[in-house]
Design a protein around this nucleic acid. Structure first.
Lengths: 226, 226
DNA sequence: CTTTATTTGTGTCAAAATAACGCAAACGAA
DNA sequence: TTCGTTTGCGTTATTTTGACACAAATAAAG
């Protein structure tokens, strides 16, 4: 096979957009590079894929060794191919985004980075490589996704209050949402997920703390917020 | 840099799910492999990424040399990473799906394939590699996408009738949609795209043949079909 | 502890969007 | 022409959404 002898293959990197939510602020985790290229500039955490690794294993390795976290929500985002995106040579980047609860993790700077730090997504510094494009795409995806899939709670504690979830949505979407209509839509959506049926009136008393069942199939989640 | 010397990089392939619509049938283009692995089995068209190529250039090369088509709608789908997905060794596959009008193209079997053929998406043969997963994901994406983005007409002639578009949607989604409500929703959505305003009453006389403007930004397209 | 202010839970109602369907004009075949 | 079918246009009932009133619960202040 050509591809395994005469052809040279591009390097393949995994880059992560790690989102965290804390005190009404959506943040992204960035690393300050210790080495060229883009020395002393901020970039997304990443690593080269090893020959025997799956994408998710590389993700775990990045999260574990560089950041000391693991077992978080991960979703493949997009693959970036600009031949000039890395000055060292041809590097394809397969990207994922992660949703974590920052209060559960202690950031540790890895070998590659001087510093690891949370940045408010509204106030990110200039990013090296094409990481601004990656970050933009991730934020766009997250905004779209929380409207039709219950991923938002991944950024909160396992138990959360309705106002907490409400604030999270307002923060991520950057709009204000009527508190009472939001509540109704969330409960309706969750009810459909859990029972398959439509919620009529106030069929059930609700607790102070909510919890989304991550096991059940989570289709039919549609918030229709405008 | 490690990645450029001591590390070996996986091969990187581009695989395409080419959809075509003809006579009330949504089809996918498959190739019958001439060589091992999966000799004489059907697979998606694909090629290895060349060092200096962008993804889209590889897509064009596949479409041109193997199928004699070009200048079609292409969208990145997903990247597949199972270490065992190719028996020859580690191959990452970045996949795209394409929407073409089959009546405009003449299928030509390429060097790699004995035969290239359209298959009804409901009656696809067993596929080699992990191409069934790729195909499933593409069909799922297409079904979701036509509900919030005007891509369906890419499968039709530039000018098309409303019943043609209606049939296309019913066929892809596999459901029946009220003809009159569908018409209204399409016209509403197109009106918003073109003018930015909401359509009131029947503000405009409509021609027998329709045409979607591909230049304008196509947000706000939301069919809400259930 | 009370009293007061703020936050949160629940229900109502008008407006908007959607689904269901009637009807006539246009078209094609007999 | 006539008849059957397809296509375009509209109306109405139902559902969903957005805006908001009000009471219960919680937190803060005296």
């Amino acid at each position: 096979m050509k591809a395994f002898s005469s052809y040279q293959n591009p390097a393949l990197a995994i880059d992560l957009v790690v989102f965290g939510y804390h005190e009404k602020t959506l943040s992204v985790l960035l690393l300050n590079r210790k080495e060229a290229p883009f020395k002393d500039q901020w970039t997304l955490p990443g690593a080269f894929l090893q020959m025997e690794e799956s994408f998710l294993q590389t993700c775990s390795r990045i999260l574990q060794t560089k950041l000391g976290m693991d077992n978080v929500y991960l979703e493949q985002l997009y693959s970036f191919d600009d031949p000039a995106r890395d000055p060292r040579g041809r590097v394809i980047s397969v990207t994922y985004y992660a949703l974590v609860n920052p209060s559960k993790f202690q950031i540790v700077a890895g070998q590659m980075a001087n510093d690891a730090q949370w940045f408010n997504v509204q106030e990110t510094p200039a990013l090296g490589f094409d990481h601004q494009d990656i970050f933009d795409k991730a934020l766009q995806r997250l905004k779209a996704k929380i409207l039709y899939f219950p991923v938002g709670f991944q950024l909160l504690d396992e138990l959360f209050t309705m106002p907490e979830l409400h604030e999270l949505y307002e923060c991520i979407l950057g709009i204000s949402i009527d508190r009472r209509n939001f509540r109704r839509k969330i409960l309706d959506a969750e009810y459909i997920i859990n029972t398959g049926a439509k919620r009529e009136g106030s069929q059930n008393r609700h607790p102070d703390l909510y919890k989304f069942n991550k096991q059940l199939k989570q289709n039919n989640f549609q918030l229709n917020i405008s």
